[in-house]
Every structure is written in C-alpha cells, then in structure tokens.
Design a binder for these strands. Structure first.
Length: 247
DNA sequence: CTGTGATCATTT
DNA sequence: AAATGATCACAG
C-alpha cells in the first residue's frame, strides 16, 4: 500500500515563535505539506520544544506539536481546531506498511442531556465534517525524535461514510438514552466505537440509569476503528497515485 | 470535573 | 497481532 512519506523537504521560512492561524484551507494544506519529510525532532527544534524520549507520559505530544506548527489555536473547547475554515486536525500514527497503529479519538460522548439529540446537530458530526489527517510514523521501535511526518490529506466523509457513522452513533446513543451505557463495549459499532476517555478508571461523570435516575460512570469517547481510518488513507493515496500516472 | 491532545499495556 | 479497557499531561 502506498502511503508515501515524502522525503522531499520543502524549505520554509520558519520563524517559529508564533504561527498565525491559517485563513484558508489552501494555506493550511500548504503548511501541512511543508511539514512532510521532516522528523518530529526537527519540527520540535524549530518550535523550540523538547522532544520527549517516548509518549508514555505525553500521549498527546505529537498532536500538540503539529498544532503548534500549523497555527492551531489550542485550548478551545468543543470546537474544530480551525473553526474559521471548518477543519479538524488529526495526527495518525502509522505502521511501516502505512496502516494506522491506533484507533482515532474523535470527541467525548454526551452521557446526559441527550434527549432529542440528533446526528445532524451533534458535536461529533461537526468534528468529522472535514478533517486534515497528518500521518506520522508510529512504530515504537523508532525513536520519537526520528519519526517522519508524512503527506497530509484533507478528508470529508462521503455520503456512504457519513451514513455508516450516523448508524453507529445512533446505535450507541440508543444505549445511552435508555440508561444502558454500562452495556456498551468496544465491540459495538462497526466503524465508530465507544470507549473510556478519562484520567483513569476511577474518574466519574453523570449519566442515566435504566430508570432514568442519575448515576455516575466513567467518561466515554467516540473513536474511529483502525479499519475505517485505514480505508480513508488508502483511498486517498491510491487515488492520488492514479492522478500522478495520468500526467 | 471536562475537554484538549491521544497512546499505553494487558487481554484476546 | 489486533483489539479493548486503562491511562498520561495540561488548561480552565
């Protein structure tokens, strides 16, 4: 499978003190392409950020680094990374064969005030309408600072993909509405799954019980299965390869 | 605690 | 080897 890690480094006039937010999709994509072919260590150096030895104590470090490099405004709650241009940023760890090594966290799942909530107005739909994916080498045997950033891609769900995600979301939300969140396991949902999303297993948040009474349970999040994201990447790079051969 | 950024580490 | 449940750091 072709998931090219660009070895062509586009020189950039970096002045990594503070990167302004991009004002268009084209500008954001240009910047993302300019990151391809650099290692995480090189990008960190340009940002004056120290690259940790591994991700055990900083699982979100790669994502934060890319946000800094692309001018994302951090700290915004429940919003897309680039709200002005309607784009969400996701880094994705890939194997030597270009396949995702991890599921992709999308957003936290609402466990209360879900009465009447529909897919059309859900937070998750807003997050997945347009995503800038940035593949990064993720094999643990590769030292973090030596991992290469790959070619970015903009993805928007096809009619079919959105229908699939909506179906999974509705199945999962049905459990939540009925107070059966405890019955949900990671095996529910064909493309979208619901799993814990918390500091640890002792964290508790409010939800509903089977009789509608308030209960406390672990916070959950929606995640894309690897097969789903693998298909997104494969489709994109196979198509771009066809474009190249046409020229 | 909630939500941002996710990957870890044990089980299957 | 892949998948699931658990976990890490930080801002507000």
């Amino acid at each position: 499978m072709l998931l090219a890690l660009s070895m062509k480094k586009i020189e950039w006039i970096w002045d990594m003190v503070m990167i302004p937010a991009p004002t268009s999709e084209a500008e954001l994509l240009d910047r993302a392409y300019a990151l391809a072919g650099f290692t995480l260590g090189e990008l960190a150096q340009k940002c004056h950020i120290t690259c940790p030895v591994d991700l055990r104590r900083e699982k979100g470090w790669v994502g934060m680094l890319l946000e800094t490099c692309l001018g994302a405004t951090a700290g915004n709650k429940q919003m897309q990374d680039f709200q002005n241009i309607g784009i969400e940023l996701k880094s994705i760890p890939i194997s030597y064969t270009g396949k995702p090594l991890e599921t992709t966290f999308v957003c936290v799942a609402p466990l209360k005030d879900v009465h009447g909530l529909t897919w059309e107005v859900s937070n998750i739909r807003n997050k997945i309408l347009k995503i800038l994916w940035i593949p990064v080498e993720g094999e643990r045997e590769i030292p973090l600072c030596e991992r290469y950033v790959g070619m970015p891609l903009i993805w928007q769900p096809s009619i079919e993909e959105e229908a699939q995600l909506k179906a999974d979301w509705e199945e999962l939300m049905e459990f939540i509405v009925l107070g059966k969140v405890h019955q949900i396991t990671a095996q529910h949902g064909e493309h979208l799954q619901l799993r814990p999303k918390a500091a640890n297993s002792k964290a508790l948040t409010k939800a509903y019980g089977v009789n509608g009474q308030p209960i406390r349970t672990m916070p959950r999040g929606f995640y894309f299965r690897t097969q789903f994201t693998s298909r997104i990447l494969a489709n994109h790079f196979m198509l771009s390869n066809l474009d190249i051969t046409k020229e």
